[in-house]
Design a protein around this nucleic acid. Structure first.
Lengths: 369, 369
DNA sequence: CTGTTAGCGCGTTCAG
DNA sequence: CTGAACGCGCTAACAG
């Protein structure tokens, strides 16, 4: 490994001149430049970023701390972050917390030690402890996906409450009256926001929320399965289930399959998060799709514009809209339809994307709206 | 940001003593240790890893360079790498090359500059240029997923040839005689190995490979779709399609849906790569599943054991076995079954995992095997 | 346009 | 058991 002074020696100039040539900073004569470049080529010299980083106090490195890179929602966010960061000469480190506050704290400490230039954080809890720790070290932060209290921090997320409202409204429009919701843990804002949107939709329709139909758990398939089993034992049984994320939805599907219930004839399912089109043969679930790539992209841009001094002042809270996509997993509840007239439609069904106007004709219910 | 000498000053000792306390190296008296720890706490001192890295010439950082983190296969590999690396105190940087040699070269140069301790590489091409560049900088490398020429480099991959053989054999056993294969680009070893396994299976069954049924393209949905359209126009049309990866398979499914062909009644599909169980309601595709997490885990372990000096000598080539999982997307070809007796089985179908012995009874064909 | 000086924060070396 | 001196590779600040 040759160093900058090896190059300087070979080129017959000082290290400083070499530095200027490498970084295109300051002036340098054609001749000196040529000699330096020749020396660099001869030695196959590659500058050592560590020295530069130590001196300039910039690592050109961002960190993305999230719960699990295996979740397609986060994978997509990650790709958005990487694309933007890369275009600005920044690299990205990924850290999986698995929703554990302990893991999160350990990673954040490590990131501070490593002097990353900024942290993009999907907080494992809304306690704000992590944010305080980061700000005590003057570490720039953008919070992703979740709501936080602090007014000083930038955040980019999707409107969970509104998305949940849309899904619930859709089910009510189909005629459902008993709708269950299976969500994540109480300490995560998306979990509670989605329940809140669900409740508001029920109330707006003049329906009475039933706490027996609300379950909190983990955002994974195992817990989705468990919660679905519980909810299927409730009497009277709900006619529709709202899964607050994709993994929970798949756990629900499994539970229904095991119980022999058909979707949507015996039970409707709707969920948050779509599965990327590239990964599925025929999309089946009615979902609210979050703009995951956009969340990552916007978060990275916000971070970079702070770091490059193009943005300053109070924290921005960017809230992106979600989109309702109606597919075959949601239908009219059994009681509403004659048994003989419930054919399963297995023909190719293009997505009916709801844009503004609900695609499904609203069923007139007791209450307005 | 306080430094090690701030702590030293406050504790009334030298910087060296502080360093010893932090790293538990050498001796230090109880008293000194206590004073240092108090000072650290008071200043909320966090050691700057950059200084340490510059001095020790170790960054405790690995890089994973792959084509696209959005591909579930690579995401799973990434998680395997991260878990192992994290357990050893290493961090991981991810780089998406999108199969571009240019992108790859840029990333690798950046990684050398950043002085990462090692690179885990899914090479965009089998040219070996990247490997030569890395070795010229004495950068430790483990190649993942793909074959390379060099005998000096460690690699961890799955046996593509054998997996393709299993899938093709399965189709032949069902009675298929005209089987198409849609694969990736010729410069990637997995693409050509899968075609090789396919050809060997045909030959072993006494069938004649038809080059019109072999297509090379990109490992993505768009190209899978395009290649499927081409292959459906071939006369006589094949009765089964072997997609060499998951994305190609989904492109094929889309093409078939658009053409109005049913799977498996009108066309069987088999593919490389399973979709993680957590992401799908009911798995449908007959696949060969690669142990992706294991590939990542083993690669990271190999790298760490080299870095920690526990392994030395010639490059290891770890080849992991794949597993055939038979599902509903593959069936007996149309001609072989009376039209009246081809019911679609929509009941819950547990996976029939083939372990050693083929699950599907072998159809007696002209040739042995 | 170019070179010199002086660190960035830390750990190794060696003498107390 | 502890500290002083030095250097890792690079660049900001200042002369020339």
């Amino acid at each position: 490994m040759s160093t900058i002074s090896d190059v300087a020696k070979l080129a017959g100039v000082s290290a400083m001149t070499v530095s200027r040539v490498i970084n295109n900073s300051g002036y340098s004569s054609r001749e000196a430049r040529a000699r330096v470049e020749a020396a660099i080529a001869e030695l196959a010299y590659v500058p050592n970023a560590l020295g530069r980083q130590l001196r300039s106090k910039q690592t050109k490195m961002l960190a993305l701390v999230l719960s699990d890179i295996m979740n397609p929602f986060f994978t997509t966010i990650a790709r958005g972050v990487e694309d933007v960061a890369g275009a600005h000469g920044f690299s990205v480190m990924f850290c999986n917390t698995d929703e554990s506050e302990t893991e999160e704290a350990q990673y954040l400490l490590m990131l501070v030690q490593r002097q990353v230039d900024g942290v993009l954080l999907v907080p494992a809890s809304s306690s704000g402890k992590s944010l305080r720790m980061l700000s005590s070290h003057q570490m720039p932060v953008v919070v992703l996906d979740r709501r936080i209290q602090s007014r000083h921090v930038d955040s980019v997320r999707c409107d969970s409450e509104a998305g949940a409202y849309k899904l619930t409204e859709h089910l009510i429009g189909l005629g459902h009256r008993r709708i269950a919701v299976l969500t994540g843990r109480r300490s995560v804002s998306t979990s509670v926001d989605r329940v809140a949107g669900y409740r508001r939709a029920l109330l707006d329709a003049g329906l009475n929320p039933d706490d027996a139909l609300v379950r909190y758990g983990e955002y994974n398939q195992v817990d989705g399965h468990r919660m679905a089993q519980e909810i299927l034992a409730v009497d009277p049984r709900p006619t529709a289930i709202f899964a607050a994320n994709n993994f929970i939805a798949f756990g629900v599907m499994r539970a229904l399959r095991e119980t022999g219930l058909r979707v949507p004839e015996d039970m409707s399912i709707v969920a948050f998060d779509d599965v990327p089109a590239a990964w599925v043969g025929e999309p089946f679930l009615t979902v609210v799709d979050q703009p995951a790539y956009e969340i990552g992209r916007r978060a990275a841009e916000l971070m970079l514009s702070r770091l490059e001094g193009r943005t300053s002042g109070a924290g921005r809270d960017v809230v992106l809209p979600s989109e309702l996509i109606v597919r075959r997993s949601s239908g009219v509840p059994r009681a509403e339809v004659p048994v003989s007239a419930a054919p399963v439609d297995h023909a190719p069904t293009p997505d009916r994307r709801a844009r503004g106007v609900p695609v499904v004709p609203a069923v007139t219910t007791g209450a307005a709206r």
